[in-house]
């Protein structure tokens, strides 16, 4: 919520998805023609990888993904190696907004 508001304040058009299944995220990303997908991690990292796989399968691999939340430190490298922008708790909002701006520019 805090991150969503910060992005909105920085000029992004933010659509909140809620607790979605991977297929719903892919659907929504396609329908809304989004520039970035943000995920709030609250569980095991396999679930995040499944979402990334689903996006890849849906042909949406070029949409950059940004994740925050309770990310176990040992899971960060695996996400980074898939091109995900990782922002654990305590990351300054400015850093997240910068990353989002940079990533949006890449596809935009």
């Amino acid at each position: 919520m805090v991150v969503a508001r910060a992005l909105r304040d920085a000029g992004f058009d933010v659509v909140l998805g809620g607790m979605l299944r991977a297929s719903d995220i892919a659907q929504m990303a396609g329908d809304e023609d989004v520039q970035i997908i943000g995920l709030n991690v609250g569980g095991r990292i396999e679930v995040v990888h499944r979402i990334l796989d689903t996006l890849d399968d849906a042909g949406l691999a070029d949409i950059p993904v940004l994740v925050g939340g309770t990310i176990p430190p040992q899971a960060i490298d695996g996400l980074v190696s898939r091109g995900v922008s990782v922002h654990p708790p305590g990351s300054p909002l400015a850093e997240i907004v910068d990353a989002a701006t940079r990533l949006a520019g890449r596809v935009g």
Binding site: G43, R44, I71, P73, Q74, G90, P92
Partner: peptide, 24 residues
């Protein structure tokens, strides 16, 4: 907040692993 926005170490001094319990 010490270690987060003040007195922050350049690298993680006291790393621990996140606990994954018996989920999976």
């Amino acid at each position: 907040i010490v270690g987060t926005n003040v007195h922050r170490s350049p690298e993680e001094l006291m790393p621990i692993q996140g606990f994954e319990g018996r989920s999976g």
